[in-house]
Structures are given as structure tokens and as C-alpha cells.
């Protein structure tokens, strides 16, 4: 028993390293995709020097910031606190990978969707907020104010949207664990086949995408409000290794949230879940489709003022998600 525990703990510590590595590589690649695509929509080249098509550019940027630049010292802030909270945020993202099928050993339990939301939404959001607040600067605090105002509506919207497929699948799949991410991942595609469940799924997917957009502070939700254009909101004071940490946290957040949409809404490897190669390819394609949608949203809207931002999250994410949830309750009462 004791040896078994030790062995499994050893396995898990290896898995933590592996998930961290996956998180890093995948988030850097996602950043490349978003940057390239976003540049092209603005008739720019985007990253193009390091590696083929500039695919290694984010890696180079990250390593340069981390290894070459020096950490600043602040009169009015604590770099240590910022570091600690940034690392906790990345830790939370690494941990939430254990609930998704991207990890070789996956953890499932009844109602683990709530755990996923608390890891992915609340822990990450709180640690990001505390990280931003650690380096006091009027612009950074304005950014924090904006970020937390958006979060207050984006978190419930994301929660509601994620609950929809889980709620539907836990009744459709008729097997345990109930209200679990793992069951939703495996059976979410079946919901798109029935028009009764496809409507709530569509609404929930839209809501999830918009809430991700706003949770990540991507345009149109990104600029701090002011008479003059403010510098960059929350990341004003970040430079050197801290900026690398922040960029990694942000990209990793984008990666994991898009992964949630890919698996829990779009069904992951389905319809090729038996074939390993085709399954992986399908998953990647779906993931890129999600990223592309987010990038298109990012490039096609002007920036909102804060109250417009909050209102539009309520209008286009929270309310559709609630409608989807009520529709799915109604639909299930018929089935």
C-alpha cells in the first residue's frame, strides 16, 4: 500500500512536469497561430523570422524575456508577490489539464465540472487579479478594475455555458460519473445530432466563446477606459521575466479555455475517436477552428468602453447561456 502510494505519487509528479511542458509548448504554438492570423487580418506579416513561418517566434520571445532581460525592482510593488501569484495561476492551469483528455492519466469524479470551473475560472482569475495588483500603478489598477468588472459577469456566463453540455450528457449518456467532464467529452457530439439539443448547444457554444474572449481581455474587451489612450492596462509594470510569466499565463489560459470548448462542446476527436491519428488530427483541426474564431472576433470589433463591455457580455454570453440552460432543462423534461 505504502509503496503503491509512493509509486503513484512519483507518477503524478512526472505527469505534472509533462503537463507543464505540454502547456508551455501548446500555448506558445497557439500564440503563434493567433499572432500570425491577427497580423494577416491587418495586412502585416506577423512572426516570420524564427523557424519556418516564424513558428518558433513565441518561444524565442519567451526565452529572451526570461533568460536575458532582468527583473525590475519596484518602489511601490512586490515582485515576489507577482511571481508567486503568476506561478499559482500556471499551476492551476496545469492542474486543470488533469481533468481534460489531454493528460495521459485523467481524473474524473461526480460533478468534477464544478472543480474544473473553480480551478480554471476562479483560481486562475483570482491569482491573475492578485498578480496584477501586486505591482501598483494607476494604469495597472485601472486594468484590474476593468478585468474584475468583466469577470463578475464573464465567470457566471462561462459557468452556465459549460454546465449545459454536462447537464445534457449526464442524462443522455446514462452512465457515471454523473455531471462529469469526462462523460461530456465523450458524448457531447451526440447532442449536435438531435435538433432539440443542438439549439441549446449552439447557444452555449457562442456564450462560451464570448465569455472566453472577455475573460482573456482580448479585443473588444481589452482597453482601459480613459480620455487619452492608456498604456496597456494590467501589464503596464511587467517587464523582463515577469512579462514572460504573464504572457505564458495568458497564452496558457487561452489554450486551456479553447481546449475546453474543443472537447466539451465540439466533441474532441469525434467522429474518428477509434483511430488515433485521425482522432488527433480532428482534435487539432477543431482546436484551430476555435482559435481562429477567437482571432476573428478579436480582429473584427472595435474596443468597448467598460460599461459597453459588461453589457455586451451580459447580452451575448450570459443571457444566451441562461436561455440554453433553461431550454436544456425543458428539453430533458420532454425526453
Amino acid at each position: 500500500m505504502n509503496e503503491l502510494t509512493l509509486t503513484s505519487l512519483g507518477i503524478f509528479s512526472v505527469l505534472v512536469f509533462q503537463n507543464l511542458l505540454i502547456l508551455w509548448i501548446a500555448s506558445m504554438l497557439s500564440e503563434w497561430w493567433v499572432r500570425k492570423l491577427f497580423a494577416r487580418t491587418q495586412r502585416r506579416m506577423g512572426p516570420s523570422y524564427v523557424g519556418p513561418l516564424g513558428i518558433l517566434q513565441p518561444f524565442a520571445d519567451f526565452l529572451k524575456l526570461l533568460l536575458v532581460k532582468t527583473e525590475p525592482s519596484y518602489k511601490y510593488g512586490s515582485v515576489t508577490l507577482a511571481r508567486i501569484f503568476g506561478c499559482i495561476g500556471i499551476g492551476a492551469l496545469t492542474t486543470s489539464l488533469f481533468l481534460l483528455p489531454i493528460s495521459p492519466v485523467r481524473i474524473a469524479s461526480d460533478f468534477d465540472v464544478i472543480l474544473l470551473i473553480y480551478l480554471l475560472g476562479v483560481w486562475v482569475a483570482v491569482s491573475e487579479l492578485l498578480m496584477f495588483t501586486s505591482l501598483t500603478n494607476p494604469f495597472a489598477i485601472k486594468g484590474v478594475s476593468r478585468y474584475s468588472s468583466i469577470l463578475a459577469v464573464a465567470e457566471p456566463a462561462f459557468f452556465t455555458a459549460v454546465i449545459v453540455p454536462v447537464y445534457l450528457t449526464s442524462f443522455v449518456a446514462r452512465r457515471g460519473p454523473v455531471f462529469s467532464v469526462s462523460v461530456a467529452v465523450e458524448t457531447a457530439w451526440r447532442l449536435w445530432l438531435n435538433p432539440l439539443t443542438a439549439i441549446p448547444m449552439l447557444l452555449a457554444t457562442i456564450a462560451a466563446l464570448i465569455s472566453i474572449q472577455s475573460k482573456l481581455m482580448l479585443p473588444p474587451f481589452n482597453i482601459p477606459e480613459a480620455e487619452q489612450e492608456l498604456i496597456a492596462g494590467v501589464e503596464t509594470e511587467f517587464s523582463g521575466p515577469l512579462l514572460a510569466l504573464f504572457n505564458f499565463l495568458h497564452d496558457a489560459d487561452l489554450y486551456v479555455l479553447s481546449l475546453v470548448v474543443t472537447f466539451m462542446f465540439l466533441g474532441g476527436p469525434h467522429p474518428f475517436s477509434e483511430n488515433l491519428v485521425l482522432g488527433v488530427l480532428t482534435t487539432i483541426l477543431k482546436y484551430l477552428a476555435v482559435l481562429t474564431t477567437i482571432t476573428i472576433l478579436k480582429s473584427s470589433f472595435g474596443r468597448f468602453r467598460i460599461e459597453q463591455g459588461v453589457t455586451s457580455v451580459i447580452k451575448y454570453a450570459l443571457i444566451p447561456a441562461l436561455v440554453a440552460l433553461i431550454l436544456s432543462v425543458v428539453v430533458l423534461s420532454f425526453i
Binding site: A125, L151, P156, Y167, L325
Partner: peptide, 16 residues
């Protein structure tokens, strides 16, 4: 589930 959602809204707003 909508009551769970309202519990989540309460938590998110009190975060502020």
C-alpha cells in the same frame, strides 16, 4: 441548474 447559476453569480459578484 439555474439556481446553481445564481449561486455562481453571487460568488462572482462578491469577488469584486
Amino acid at each position: 441548474p439555474y439556481i446553481s447559476v445564481i449561486i455562481n453569480i453571487i460568488s462572482a459578484v462578491s469577488l469584486l
